[in-house]
Amino acid sequence: MWEYSEKVQEHFFSPRNAGAVADANATGDVGSLSCGDALRLTLKVDPETEVILEAGFQTFGCGSAIASSSALTEIIKGKTLDEALKVTNQDIADYLDGLPPEKMHCSVMGREALQAAVANYRGEEWKDDHEEGALVCKCFAVDSVLIEETIRSNKLTTVEEVVNYTKAGGGCSACHEGIEEILAGVLAESGQTFAPSAKSVAVAMPTPPAKMTNLQRMHRIETVLESIRPTLQRDHGDVELVDIDGKNVYVDMKGACAGCQMASVTLEGIQERIIDELGEFVRVLPSQAMPRAERAYG
């Protein structure tokens, strides 16, 4: 059975704001046809201030769908509509101390119901632009639709490229067969055939670098890290350079990034960016991976 956090369980067993708000003036109905979950969100909005006074939900769905709906209503009560619209599905998942990757779509549904309700209040038509496919990569929660679209729009032909563009397949590699199948399918659309190579999938190395001084090299690495930080900070995390030792770059992942499953994405992402920038191979490692003696004395 799923590994649900205490918080998810608590919101499932005693959901907050269950049921329809009696004199609601905004309603959002959304569903995910593929998984059968459906959600109705009703809001009572103060017409003067646009503050959400009351929020209620009705959910036809699993444990995490109910918990996500409950969390959403708690988060948005007291916010203005504009503030509420800024709530991301990651915020909902964070509020619940995380959801299993297979269940992230439940939090997406919550956010969409909110958008639909706000559109309803403002007399607009809400159209969903997000299509969801079957989950392919469990390590990084990437679905088939995203992989397909990325392959199509970037004309990808190898599993390595799919890893680089989507992260799917960049962890345990168990999903590579599935990725190969999607590649074969998309390539077939344009009359191409997928040509797998026997060698294992590895990030291709760029051409050899022009010589750089150590100081130049360090600056470049710092620049890359600086450019990445805003993205991480947006997800309530951060990264800090700890040491550079030859090909090993040690960093500290902070906040929401620390210890989270996505840390390796970010580490890998950072590594790729540095490799691109320097034109040489480096390994980006968490500072915990520094050799013991150095940590003790250095």
């Binding site: 059975m1 067993f13 995910s32 593929s34 998984c35 059968g36 979950d37 769905g61 699993c62 444990g63 995490s64 769908a65 297979e102 269940k103 779509h105 969801e132 079957a134 989950l135």
Partner: peptide
């Protein structure tokens, strides 16, 4: 399960698939 009763379901959400 909370009541200590074990059963199974054909729902999508117990299988990990979306269907």
């Amino acid at each position: 399960n909370k009541l200590g009763i074990a059963a199974s379901s054909g729902s999508a959400c117990t299988s990990g698939s979306l269907e």
